[in-house]
Design a protein around this nucleic acid. Structure first.
Lengths: 137, 137
DNA sequence: CTAATGTCTATAGCTGCTATAGCTTCAAGG
DNA sequence: CCTTGAAGCTATAGCAGCTATAGACATTAG
């Protein structure tokens, strides 16, 4: 049996975040001591690791809730879980593509090395006028 | 002179967002009609375009405020503006690198095509056990 | 002139936490 | 056994960057 602090240290999830996940319905309400403190078992710890990992992979709280509901019934087909993972991958690829455009733009802006004054600064000019950009974002 | 709705259509920034930017000190308070409605001129429109573009490039409200303050005095050297752009580029590169790791992970998870039940689903298993990952994230 | 649309302010909600206040409980040392 | 300090409890507020709502007033086209 672990206290919330021990669980926090084991998983690397901060204490208030654990309580938050419980509130959000991702963690089952654990047992309590006579003095009303939460006590977790290894099932709780595994569940929290699952949540942590899924969050690191960018899944939303709501999506994680879906996955947990899905996993509850072991006889369900897992196609849905695959679909969620695939959708998430697509989303991340889009975010990467978008960021790469921005990165190119910023690098280009930054490289125009006018050492003058603000009056004729490329950075500010480019920020002010999108048409100076090479790609759209 | 444009109403807030016209300005919104011209720039693609939603009406409540324009008011929010004003509140945040990014837009100067515009003139008003006798009936207390905001009326913008082209300077206001340009400023809003600047803000929009900067936001698209991932700059925070606070950073944009700095840039605007910087641009206010035309005789200031623009090294600071360059620095802000460069820092932003670095940050974006880091985000890209991180996302690419996640993308690899999700794609790998999704490709393990077990068409079975939740009980032995790779997606759920991998989410539950970080040690099954190839890279850390 | 009227009706529809637009705008006003103020306030609440969203996501995913994090921080604070003021209290109680736990565990270890003396 | 008792004290003390760390850790836990709940409830609430705050963060970014908007977005949505309510209820009132302004503008504009027909």
């Amino acid at each position: 049996m672990y206290s919330i602090g021990q669980l926090s240290r084991m998983t690397g999830v901060k204490v208030p975040t654990i309580r938050y996940y419980e509130q959000m319905g991702l963690l089952d309400e654990p047992g309590r001591t006579a003095g009303n403190q939460r006590r977790y078992d290894s099932a709780g710890r595994e569940r929290l690791s699952f949540i942590k990992h899924a969050r690191e992979l960018g899944l939303s709280i709501a999506t994680i809730r879906d996955l947990i509901a899905l996993a509850r019934d072991e006889s369900m087909p897992c196609a849905q879980a695959h679909e969620i993972a695939a959708r998430q991958a697509v989303e991340i690829r889009q975010r990467i593509a978008r960021l790469q455009k921005l990165e190119a733009e910023l690098t280009r802006i930054g490289n125009s090395h006018d050492s003058g004054t603000v009056a004729d600064c490329h950075v500010l000019a480019t920020l002010g006028d999108h048409s100076m950009c090479l790609s759209d974002h």
